[in-house]
Design a protein around this nucleic acid. Sequence first.
DNA 1: TCCGTAGTTGCATATGATTCGCATTTGCAT
DNA 2: ATGCAAATGCGAATCATATGCAACTACGGA
Lengths: 140, 140
Amino acid sequence: MNKTENSDWPAGIKRTKQREQVFSILTKSDGPLSAMDICSLTQKDGNAVWLSTVYRILELFTQKALVVKTSMQQNDMAVYELNRHDHKHYAVCVGCNKIIPIENCPIERFIPEISDSGFHVLGHKMELFGYCRECDLKHR
Amino acid sequence: MNKTENSDWPAGIKRTKQREQVFSILTKSDGPLSAMDICSLTQKDGNAVWLSTVYRILELFTQKALVVKTSMQQNDMAVYELNRHDHKHYAVCVGCNKIIPIENCPIERFIPEISDSGFHVLGHKMELFGYCRECDLKHR
DNA sequence: TCCGTAGTTGCATATGATTCGCATTTGCAT
DNA sequence: ATGCAAATGCGAATCATATGCAACTACGGA
């Protein structure tokens, strides 16, 4: 909500106080946030944004490909983060649901063969699954 | 529920009529199914499996890495499919939510650098997102 | 600068997938 | 065959997300 953030405002999106708040929170966060997380953060800010409004804003941002929506394994809450180039991927343990970051990314150099040849790729999500060392030892 | 299916029964899972039905339905399906889809199919079978039981069975199968659980973009219903080697990936349009299959897979030859070096990879999920040709032309 | 209006938000309430509790039933080891 | 631990049927609870509507706000044109 200061000058700097205003100048970064993405094109094609009408500017409102609430959208600026949500955008600013996402910009400052270094990890993905749930809608509820974001709502709570606006409350600390002194100027609360109602939860359903947060959902509507996140839906808009997702459709504009400004934000990536992900729902991690077993977790019934979707999380959102800015569609950055500097991204991370995760391995999820199906035994204990532990989430472990992957350091490299196989998709950077990948040229997908998509049947819609006009498809304009804006990003990707990837997730490995399996057993973490601990669960694997319990040979489940 | 015939001999052939019985002989395929996965190790480490107690065999019940309901689990056999769910497993058989997943085996015969060539696409991912929701819990409700599976429940409906058991009803046509004449021997209905209650929805909450289907969920419990799918959770078990997922923890045994027999089944992959996925929740596609925007769709609030999780889908499940057998963890096959012959798998597919998808590109999702953030404009219209159209789902387009990808023909090749970047992860086959990928050696991930995971901080848990004991992680036992059993499968993966991948999804591209962007605009399909049609939505891209509308320059959204 | 002020006004009109289309688009947005606050708020309450609905929706619908998934989970949970418990009494009954079933698979399997002894 | 018998007993017991585990699984299921069924109902009801939970909880994230969507929706309806009246009040409000951003923003372009006069």
